[in-house]
């Protein structure tokens, strides 16, 4: 008797395999090569990103960006929530 072909069970292993590979790639793509090593000193230094390539045309744009920089970036402002939420005594 010919076994019944179920398309679901044919596709399932491929889907699971692709998802697992994606997860592994995402997980390890952000780690350095020596990621298993614990840092020798604390605190971990901040390494600044390499500056973007320069061009003569880019200087005015850079000046504008510098001018618009704010120490307290409003986009990073924390939520304004009521910190005294309560109910009266029963």
């Amino acid at each position: 008797m010919k076994p019944k072909l179920n398309i679901f069970w044919l596709i399932l292993p491929s889907v699971v395999f692709i998802l697992l590979v994606s997860l592994v790639v995402l997980r390890f793509s952000r780690r350095p090569e020596n990621s298993t090593e614990a840092p020798a000193v604390s605190p971990t230094p901040i390494v600044y990103p390499a500056p973007t390539p320069i061009s003569v045309q880019g200087l005015p744009s850079l000046v504008k960006q510098i001018d618009g920089w704010q120490a307290n970036d409003p986009r990073l402002a924390p939520p304004v929530v009521d910190r005294k939420i309560s109910l009266p005594e029963e």
Binding site: I46, Y48, P49, A50, P51, T52, I54, V56, G58, L59, L62, Q65, I66, W69, Q70, A71, N72, D73, L76, P78
Partner: peptide, 27 residues
């Protein structure tokens, strides 16, 4: 903690600007 994190972001952005300006100055 939030203040320190925000300032770390701002400081890093400022450092990047400084690096870029130094590049223009060298050029």
């Amino acid at each position: 903690m939030v203040l320190a994190a925000r300032m770390q972001v701002s400081s890093t952005r400022l450092a990047n600007f400084q690096d870029q300006l130094a590049g223009y100055l060298d050029a």
